[in-house]
Amino acid sequence: MSNESKDRERLSSLVDNLSRADDVKLNRRAFIKSTFGAGIALGLATVPFNIAAFVRSEPRADRQFITTVDAIERGKSLEFEYPGNESSLLVHLKNGEFVAYNNKCTHLQCPVFYVEEEDVLLCPCHRGYFSVDGQPQAGPPQRELPKVLLEIENGKIFAVGREIHHGA
């Protein structure tokens, strides 16, 4: 027997036990089983985050001096760190009010900037818009920005705490 015919015989012995109908059926079941497995895995994947949250310590939100009232003009903003090393944004609104938020976008943690012309906070990564009261307005973010509580004393602005949920 020539080498070529031996190869052909070997090849046919590899495929002659396969039935297309059975193969498709088997793959369908395997796919559905994998989908069940994926659903379970996604559900269980929430557990490690809760354990990590339980173990880690939240940065302390002590009273911290940010800047003076005169140092920041109306319609301008200033970046600072509060609490701990977390990036935050102090905004002097056009109506004279001061507001501050942690400026990590609640979608994918990109920095959020104040846009004076539109009087909104904008996350440029995916064009997520927040109103100046920290609520999501447009784009992918679904949650409000954590609010930094402020106190103004003798022309000095202090950060005194943080609120994760602060309503509209």
């Binding site: 989908t35 994926a38 659903g39 996604l42 559900g43 994947a45 929430t46 985050f49 809760n50 990590a52 949250a53 339980f54 939240e58 942690n102 990590k104 609640t106 979608h107 943690q109 679904q142 949650r143 954590p146 994760i164 949920h165």
Partner: peptide
């Protein structure tokens, strides 16, 4: 499956902002 996918995303987002 879709619900769990969204819940996982929400969990991660909450983790990032200390919303335990």
């Amino acid at each position: 499956l879709a619900t769990n996918m969204i819940l996982l995303q929400y969990t991660i987002e909450s983790y990032m902002v200390y919303d335990h």
